[in-house]
Write a protein that binds this DNA or RNA. Structure first.
Lengths: 145, 145
DNA sequence: CCTTGACCCTGTAGCGGCCACAGGGTCCAT
DNA sequence: ATGGACCCTGTGGCCGCTACAGGGTCAAGG
């Protein structure tokens, strides 16, 4: 007797704050198992899907790629394994985030410089424009008629 | 007499550190003007293209979108206009960068927490896994048989 | 003069991570 | 029976390239 509760894709979407299309997408790319279907060919999800999708969404919010999410899910399923592998994925991701922050901070610095130099004159004397069109790249061009 | 120098797409690519395909792409999407062609249908670039592409690349390095780059180019061409519009584009971009930094810093914080809690036991007791599968989202699910 | 190999051309498909249709089917309340 | 809210599949689009495939062009060397 299949007395388990089940709910539609729309319900699952609402419960997890995910768009319906995204859920179908997750199924296609294999981060969410394909659920049973009703007689009318509707997807019928159970509690395990809700759990799974919550995990996926949370990991995505934390910036993990879908590939990483797949890895994490697989790792998380192996309940008796040591969790070093999970830890490693997280650390790698943290490093990536830190690199990105550093890059963006450098960018911020450059942009602030740029903007700070603007004297609000005409474009012809605009430092921003000048900074964007720098003294050309490596030489070696003008030798080919 | 068209005595101007001209050079190939490969030369332009080398000089600006851009891939050949990217240059053709820029032409397609209208951030780099289509150059003259040689009798053999090769693109023949001049100094103005080098200047233009340098500008584009520099702006891209600074994280401006191609749409913004198009705007900046058009603004930069109007040499006698006041440069407020340029300034505005730059400021908007800076704000975006700052928002992104803030987001990533919040992320970093969460990730550090996550990782800091790992006791290197089994997956079953791993805090990372637990943190990723949180107490379900908004209620209102299990009421539909 | 002919071949070789480096370059160039166009066009198309793919990446990630979805989102937004179009064109249909299903289900439930009225 | 009908309307409207939902569901289905499939396709195309977004950004900013990148990577082919399948050809053409050109200069140097034999």
């Amino acid at each position: 007797m299949p007395s388990e509760i089940s709910f539609s894709i729309g319900d699952l979407a609402k419960a997890t704050g995910t768009k319906v299309e995204t859920i179908r997408w997750y199924e296609r790319v294999g981060v969410l198992a394909a659920p049973e279907r009703t007689s009318g060919n509707y997807r019928a999800y159970g509690a395990e899907h809700l759990e799974r999708l919550s995990f996926v969404r949370r990991a995505r919010d934390l910036g993990f790629s879908l590939d990483q999410v797949r890895d994490l899910l697989q790792l998380a399923d192996d309940r008796n394994q040591p969790c070093d592998a999970v830890d490693r994925v997280a650390r790698e991701h943290l490093e990536k985030v830190e690199r990105k922050i550093a890059d963006l901070e450098a960018l911020r610095h450059e942009l602030r410089d740029l903007i700070g130099q603007c004297r609000h004159g005409t474009v012809a004397e605009c430092r921003i424009v000048q900074a964007l069109s720098p003294q050309f790249g490596p030489a070696g061009i003008s030798r080919r008629a």
